[in-house]
Computed example of a mutant assay.
Amino acid sequence: MRILVLNWRDLSHPAAGGAEVYTEQVLRRWARAGHEVTLFASSVDGKPAAEIVDGYRVVRAGNRFTVYREARRWWDRYGRGRFDVVVDETNTVPFLAHEWVDDGARTIALVHQTCEEIWHHNAPPLAAHLGRYRLEPEWLRRLGGAPILAVSDSTRDALARFGARDVTVVPEGYEPPADLPAVAKEDRPTAVFCGRMVSYKRPWDVLRAVELARREIPGLRLWMIGGGPLLDKLRAAAPPGVEFLGRVSERVKHDRMARAHVHLSTSVREGWGLVVTEAAALGTPTIAYDVPGLRDSTRAAGGVVVPPEPQALARWLCELLPARMAEPFAPVPYGGAHGWDDVAATLLTAVELHARTPDRRSHEDQLRGADVPLGPDAGRVPGVAA
């Protein structure tokens, strides 16, 4: 097939995250299987307007705010008549491709998470109120006019609250490190937090929970991994036993995760919670807040979800950590997620079923029983240089 994917970032963007890893892992496999794949994303300093990456084409134009307009302009000049399917990968703001793709190509959205409460952590009060209660509900209401793929039950349920009716859940993926760290657990009770030091990850809650838990586990130690704007303030206010590592290499991150007894995760919401998956693959269970996304990844990884408050986190830390010291947690294959080959094949099956189905009813039952091959060779996309 000829597939166009729209995402405001590609993996080379400084703000790239888990959604962009997901995109890259899937698209490289589609291209390797012989499909013609193009990713349209915003411009990145030092990167060309178009290039081939792992067999698929990346086209870049616009910035965080104008990429949506530039995508439609590019479609009008070069895209119309060139694709079978357009995938609208939504990171808060959808491209709403189903409203302007007008040449018979099918459109389908891919949503990792809704924003909702995160608005109040990432924007000034007035903008946050406008975004949460006016803009996002309107965007998602309009997005519900097209079929949607969601990466968790939580995201599906959130989309349903905004009126989406045709939502299919597809798996999240993970590729464990080639060489898993062969390290022993710490002799001292140790918890680890890994994430950006930003408001919506709620690192302050982690510090408070550890402070409370140390009343019962005096030797408790916490490793805080990650950089971000709150790092200095958190470091200055940290209780005893807390070590801040800042932003570290993957090797150091995996080493610390593997040596800790428990991983803590306290975000306001996530699409899935990839760090939970990473920890489980390394033999470290998670205690997470019972919020969208985290509940999906944590339960899949054999962890525990608790009410979103430091007191509950501290109670479970006191109960679970000694048990994990006495009986280590066995690594979970793929951390409770799926291998990327499975993810790419399942996602492609959903896309192909939609491309071949004339109506817009739900494809979830078809997807479960489908056995669709990855497909034939296809040519390059005209209109942009390699």
Results as ranks from 00 to 15, higher is better:
219 G>Q: 15
224 M>Y: 09
224 M>C: 10
225 I>W: 06
227 G>L: 05
228 G>D: 03
229 P>L: 04
229 P>C: 03
230 L>P: 01
231 L>N: 11
231 L>G: 04
232 D>I: 13
232 D>Y: 07
235 R>E: 14
235 R>W: 08
237 A>K: 12
237 A>Q: 09
240 P>D: 12
244 F>A: 00
244 F>Q: 07
245 L>S: 10
245 L>N: 05
246 G>W: 05
250 E>H: 14
250 E>L: 15
251 R>W: 04
251 R>M: 07
253 K>W: 04
254 H>L: 05
255 D>Q: 14
255 D>R: 14
258 A>C: 01
260 A>D: 00
261 H>N: 08
262 V>E: 06
264 L>R: 02
266 T>W: 09
268 V>I: 14
269 R>W: 12
270 E>M: 08
271 G>V: 03
275 V>K: 00
276 V>R: 12
276 V>H: 00
277 T>G: 13
278 E>C: 11
281 A>M: 10
281 A>H: 05
282 L>K: 09
283 G>E: 09
285 P>A: 11
285 P>K: 04
287 I>A: 03
287 I>E: 08
287 I>G: 14
289 Y>F: 15
289 Y>T: 13
290 D>I: 04
290 D>G: 11
290 D>N: 11
293 G>I: 05
293 G>C: 11
295 R>Q: 09
295 R>Y: 10
295 R>D: 14
298 T>V: 14
300 A>I: 13
302 G>Q: 11
302 G>L: 01
303 G>Y: 07
304 V>K: 13
304 V>N: 07
305 V>I: 13
305 V>Q: 13
306 V>T: 09
306 V>P: 01
307 P>D: 10
307 P>I: 00
308 P>Y: 11
309 E>S: 13
310 P>R: 14
310 P>I: 08
311 Q>C: 10
312 A>N: 00
312 A>L: 06
322 P>S: 06
323 A>V: 03
324 R>H: 04
325 M>K: 10
326 A>H: 12
327 E>C: 06
327 E>S: 05
327 E>I: 02
328 P>Q: 02
328 P>L: 06
329 F>I: 00
331 P>V: 10
331 P>A: 04
331 P>T: 04
332 V>H: 01
336 G>F: 02
337 A>Y: 00
337 A>F: 03
339 G>V: 06
340 W>E: 03
343 V>S: 02
343 V>Y: 11
344 A>V: 05
345 A>R: 07
345 A>C: 13
346 T>S: 15
347 L>W: 03
347 L>I: 12
348 L>F: 10
352 E>I: 12
353 L>D: 08
355 A>C: 13
355 A>I: 08
357 T>N: 07
358 P>S: 09
360 R>W: 07
